[in-house]
Each structure stands twice: as C-alpha cells, then as structure tokens.
C-alpha cells in the first residue's frame, strides 16, 4: 500500500498532507506550500559557488505536477518563496505562474523574500504578511498571536526515527502540536536542508519520503 496522502482535521477543517511536501485543503480549494527557496542555486552560482544548475530546475517541475494533480483555485506560499535578490530564476517563475491563469497565487512573506513587494505583485501575486484561512492563521514563522491555529514553515522540520538494532533515520516531516495549536510544513524546495525537532507527547508527526507520507 502506498500512502501518498494523510488526513488531519484541525479545528474542524480537513487538511490533506501530501507526500510531495504540501498541504491541500479541499474545502477551500487551497494548496499550501512552504520554503521553496527558488533561485537559491542561481544565487550560489552567481557568487561563484558551483552548484549543479539542474538542481534548481526540479522545483518548478514538481510544482507544476502538484498543481495539475490537485487542481487548486489558490496556491498559498508560506514564505521563503524566493531565496535571494533577483536572478534569472525569477522571470522563469513569473512565466511559470502565467501558465496557470485560473490559479490565484498568494505569498505570505518570509525572511528570505527580499525581492520587494512590487516585484511579486507585478507578476500577479497577492502579497500579505499573514493570512486568515477559515480557522487557520497562516504565517511564515511562528506567530505570537495565539487565538487561532497557526500554520507556518520557516523551520524545515525533520525528526529522527529509531528502530531496533540501533537504526536511526532523519526524515522531513509535517509537525503538529495540537495543544499549543500550531502546525509546521516541511520545506518544499530542493537543496534546502532540514532541522531536527524533538516532539513531545502533544505532538503529531507525519514523515514524508517524497513518495509516501507516514504517521509516526
């Protein structure tokens, strides 16, 4: 059995956690994606650090697959959409969005998104600092407001798993804390790395291998 998605219900809203590192909310027809870090490879190369160029090109391919298969009306990026100051990955992405005229693209600004609001807006995006979506409060990093359930990215969460025979694995994950009412999305982008979190008893964690998403 391949488990390509898992369901969680948060404050009465059904979320689908996709193995491809995004969250689909069918009732809102919204697709949530965090930390794509577009242009990171180009930024490195511009500064003389030779990351293989194709490493940055897969992001758009994966984005397009996921939009095609989920068919959302709105795609909401939870920050760090673009890694650095402008480079040629930006016009590529603007063109990419133009290929989906029926989809609304929204950016919740992250610390890496230094391009300037008008650059995003010129490409047809809606830019916000945070966003209310039903019972959810969408931000890039954790919000200090606690009256709503906070969904964010920024951290690139992963967990360490242990098996018998001294086996360990580090896997990216969706990380929810239902008591403190927050959830964190894994980073979507290639070439982004991850940060290990240590869950306590109030946490619910779903790891993703890119092919399957599993509750642990």
């Amino acid at each position: 059995m391949t488990e390509t998605r898992q369901e969680v219900t948060v404050e009465g809203l059904r979320l689908e956690l996709l193995a491809k590192k995004a969250i689909m909310i069918p009732s809102k027809s919204a697709l949530l994606i965090a930390d794509v870090h577009l242009g990171k490879v180009n930024h490195f190369r511009k500064n003389g650090i030779p990351v293989p160029e194709p490493a940055g090109q897969n992001n758009l391919k994966r984005l397009s697959q996921i939009i095609d298969s989920e068919g959302p009306k709105e795609v909401i990026f939870l920050g760090d959409l673009f890694h650095s100051s402008a480079n040629r990955a930006w016009p590529e992405f603007a063109e990419f969005m133009a290929g989906f005229p029926k989809v609304k693209f929204t950016l919740v600004v992250g610390n890496h998104d230094i391009l300037g609001r008008h650059v995003f807006e010129d490409a047809g995006m809606t830019v916000v600092d945070h966003l209310k979506l039903g019972p959810l409060w969408l931000t890039h990093d954790r919000s200090e407001r606690d009256e709503m359930f906070n969904l964010y990215g920024h951290i690139h969460p992963a967990v360490r798993l242990r098996g018998s025979g001294k086996q360990y694995l580090k896997v990216p994950c969706f990380f929810f804390n239902l008591k403190e009412r927050y959830g964190i999305l894994p980073s979507f982008g290639d070439f982004t790395g991850s940060h290990v979190l240590k869950p306590d008893k109030d946490c619910v964690t779903f790891v993703t291998t890119g092919k399957e998403v599993l509750h642990v």
């Binding site: 360490r160 798993l161 242990r162 098996g163 360990y168 694995l169 896997v171 869950p199 790891v207 642990v216």
Partner: peptide, 10 residues
C-alpha cells in the same frame, strides 16, 4: 518506507 514503518520517534 518499510524501514520507517518499523521505527518510532527517537
């Protein structure tokens, strides 16, 4: 995926 199924959170 099969390995993960046998594992628990550290």
């Amino acid at each position: 995926e099969d390995r993960i199924r046998k594992m628990t959170l550290a």
